[in-house]
C-alpha cells in the first residue's frame, strides 16, 4: 500500500507533514437543518482523535463526511492530501463519479455503531470479501490474512461462524478486522461500543487501544471518556454543529474552558 504524500502543494503554511485528515469550514445541511456549521479539524498521521459531544451534535455526520458517505455542502475536506469526493478545478469543486469515490474509500476503514457485518457471510468471508472483490487479491492470500486478522482481534478459530452466532463484542471485533483487511492508513470509528452490553465494551476498546499503539491513525466518535483520556492525542468537543473546543485529553476533559463543555462533561464523567 503506497499512500505517498501528494506531490501537490500541502494545504496550510508551515506544515511539513501532510495531515491525514484536514477539514476547513466544513458545512452540511439536511434539508433546512444545518447540522455542520463550519468544522475545522486536523489529524496528523499516527494520531488518535476523539470526537465527543451530545447526540445530535453532528459528530457522526462529520465522520461520515470524511469518507463521503455523506456529501458536504461547503468547505474543504481532504484525506491524505486529496479532496474527499471532489476534484478541484479552478475555484470550483466537481463531485467525483461513484466509481472514483469507491476507489478513494478503500484508503479509509470504517467501523459502525451497529457493526453492519454481512449476515449471509461467515466471519472469514466478511473479512475476505472486499480484498478479493475490490482489490482482486487471490483468495488463498486473503483467507490467510483473514485468519491472521481474526487472531489479532482475539477471535482465532471463529472463521466459520456467522455473525448471528457471535456476541455483539465479537461481531464488532470482526467488523474491525474487516475494515483492517483493506489495509487503510486511516480508520474511522462511529460510536463503536454504543450498541454493546456493558460487559462487552472492554474487549472492543482493547482491540482499538492495540491499534492505536501500533501507530494507526484513528478518528473515533465515542462516549467512552476513559478511552479518550487514555488513548487520544486530541479531543474535539462538538455541540450543535460546531467544534466548541479542542485540545489534549487533559486540557479538554479536566480543564474545560467552555461552559457547554463543562456542562456535558459533568453529565458523562
Amino acid at each position: 500500500m503506497t499512500a505517498s504524500p501528494a506531490p501537490a502543494p500541502a494545504p496550510g503554511p508551515g506544515t511539513t507533514v501532510t495531515p491525514m485528515v484536514e477539514a476547513v469550514g466544513v458545512r452540511k445541511s439536511f434539508g433546512r437543518t444545518e447540522v455542520l456549521k463550519g468544522i475545522d479539524l486536523t489529524v496528523r498521521p499516527g494520531e488518535v482523535t476523539c470526537l465527543i459531544g451530545p447526540s445530535g451534535s453532528g459528530k457522526s455526520t462529520f465522520l461520515r463526511c470524511i469518507n463521503h458517505l455523506e456529501t458536504i455542502d461547503g468547505g474543504r475536506l481532504s484525506v491524505n492530501g486529496h479532496l474527499v469526493g471532489y476534484r478541484q478545478k479552478g475555484d470550483r469543486l466537481h463531485e467525483l463519479k461513484p466509481r472514483e469515490v469507491a476507489a478513494k474509500r478503500r484508503e479509509i476503514g470504517m467501523v459502525f455503531q451497529r457493526f453492519n457485518l454481512f449476515p449471509h457471510l461467515t466471519a472469514e468471508q466478511n473479512i475476505m470479501h472486499a480484498p478479493v472483490l475490490v482489490r482482486g487479491e487471490p483468495k488463498k492470500a486473503a483467507r490467510a490474512r483473514a485468519a491472521e486478522l481474526l487472531d489479532r482481534v482475539g477471535l482465532a478459530g471463529r472463521e466459520h461462524h456467522y455473525p448471528a452466532q457471535l456476541s455483539g463484542g465479537q461481531q464488532q471485533r470482526v467488523a474491525i478486522a474487516r475494515a483492517l483487511a483493506m489495509q487503510p492508513p486511516l480508520m474511522l470509528f462511529d460510536e463503536p461500543t454504543s450498541a454493546l452490553d456493558p460487559e462487552l465494551v472492554g474487549e472492543v476498546l482493547d482491540v482499538m487501544k492495540g491499534l492505536a499503539s501500533e501507530g494507526m491513525t484513528m478518528v473515533v466518535v465515542t462516549h467512552e471518556m476513559g478511552f479518550a483520556k487514555e488513548v487520544a492525542d486530541s479531543v474535539y468537543f462538538m455541540d450543535d454543529g460546531v467544534v466548541v473546543e479542542s485540545g489534549t485529553p487533559t486540557d479538554l476533559l479536566d480543564h474545560a474552558r467552555h461552559e457547554r463543555t463543562q456542562a456535558f462533561l459533568s453529565k458523562v464523567l
Binding site: 461513484p98 476507489a103 478503500r106 479509509i108 459502525f112 454481512f118 449471509h120 470479501h129
Partner: peptide, 27 residues
C-alpha cells in the same frame, strides 16, 4: 435489507453494482 449494509459495502470501497450483487441481493 438494512441500510447499514450499503454503508458498510461502500465504506469498503465496493461500487454500487458490486454491493448490489454480492451484499444486497443475496440478503
Amino acid at each position: 435489507v438494512d441500510g447499514g449494509q450499503d454503508d458498510a459495502a461502500s465504506a469498503l470501497g465496493m461500487t454500487r453494482s458490486q454491493a448490489m450483487r454480492t451484499i444486497t441481493l443475496p440478503q
